[in-house]
Structure formats: structure tokens, C-alpha cells
């Protein structure tokens, strides 16, 4: 069965088809939830909530968007709701555009010893940079740059305006990049 047939069968109560859909998207939803939640246990919970919502509202899925897009929208909402419970992220908001796009950060990365770094060390640097980024920004960065949705699609999924998505994307990119640069300069 292709995806369309699976969805149609699942809507008609075929639990095998439903199980198949969940299996096909488990990895995608889990790794996205992890990118946003930054915690295995939370990512697991968000994934469970997402598929639970999917099963409950699959009958509303009209096929006008891809199932993956629809699932992203659900998982984003769950992750952001969860993130709002703890408001320990303030880093990006506190930075002004002037400090984020400071020309002092135009370091030449070809001279940074990135290639010589152990993958693990680099991963740690990146992890701590991303941990400081607010979930609202992480979501934009992940959808737009990692999952490669267009600005318009990202805006629709997040119910944000296009300029708001652009602004968050820029700030997220600049922030991450600056954090990594700083880690190397220390």
C-alpha cells in the first residue's frame, strides 16, 4: 500500500495501516522532537503525544498537505507547549540585532580548527549553543534550515508571518554561529 492508501485504510479503522503509518514516521517525529526539546525523555513523550493526536484527528486530515507536514505541525505545537512550561531560555531575545550581527563575528571559519576537532567535541560545542537557543527559534531553524521547508511553509506551520519567520531564522543562525565562533576563540 502506498501512503495515500494507508491513510484511507487507517481512516476506515484499519489498525494495521495505522501501525504502518506510525512506524513510517516514528524516526522523523522523534528526531525532530529531540531537536526541539533537547531531551530524550521529553522527545519520547512529545512523539507519543503527536501520534496520539494523529490517531485522534486523522479523519480531519484532508490530504491537501503532506502527512509529514501535518505531523510536523502537531509535534511543533506539542513541543512549544511543553517548552512554555519552563521559561529558562532568554538568550536570543536579549540580544539586539546589533550585537547578533556584529562584524566582529566575521571570523574566517576556514582558519578555525573545526576539521581537526573530534566529532564528539564539536557535538558538545554545538549542543551547548543549541541549548541556549529558545525553542521558538530552534523550531524555525530546524524547519527552515534542517528540514528545508520554505519560509512560507514554515510560516504556515507555525502560524507566524513571513517576516517573523525570517527574523527568527536570521537571529537563530547568527546566534548559533556566534556561539560556535566564541567556543573556538576561548
Amino acid at each position: 500500500m502506498n501512503e495515500e492508501q494507508l491513510i484511507a485504510s487507517a481512516k476506515n479503522g484499519d489498525r494495521k495501516a495505522l501501525a504502518e503509518l506510525v512506524k513510517n514516521y516514528g524516526q522523523t517525529v522523534y528526531s525532530f522532537a529531540f531537536k526541539v526539546c533537547r531531551d530524550r525523555e521529553k522527545a519520547e513523550n512529545m512523539m507519543q503525544e503527536t501520534f496520539y493526536s494523529m490517531i485522534k484527528s486523522l479523519h480531519q486530515f484532508d490530504g491537501n498537505s503532506k502527512l509529514s507536514t501535518w505531523l510536523y505541525r502537531i509535534v511543533v505545537n506539542h513541543c512549544l507547549m511543553e517548552a512554555r512550561k519552563s521559561s529558562r531560555y532568554t538568550f536570543v531575545e536579549q540580544e539586539t540585532d546589533d550585537s547578533l550581527f556584529d562584524e566582529k563575528y566575521i571570523a574566517d571559519w576556514s582558519t578555525l580548527p573545526i576539521k581537526n576537532l573530534e566529532t564528539k567535541e564539536l557535538r558538545n560545542i554545538l549542543d551547548s549553543a543549541i541549548d541556549k537557543l529558545q525553542p521558538e527559534y530552534r523550531v524555525v531553524f530546524t524547519l527552515r534550515d534542517v528540514e528545508e521547508y520554505s519560509t512560507e511553509e514554515t510560516a504556515k506551520m507555525l502560524e507566524l508571518s513571513v517576516p517573523a519567520v525570517k527574523s527568527r531564522l536570521h537571529r537563530a543562525r547568527a546566534f548559533l554561529r556566534n556561539e560556535i565562533t566564541k567556543a573556538f576563540q576561548e
Partner: peptide, 10 residues
Amino acid sequence: TIDLYKKCTE
């Protein structure tokens, strides 16, 4: 930065 992040899949 984006490439690095892409590789960080769980």
C-alpha cells in the same frame, strides 16, 4: 553550522 546540526540526528 547547518550541516553540523543536520548530522546531529538522534
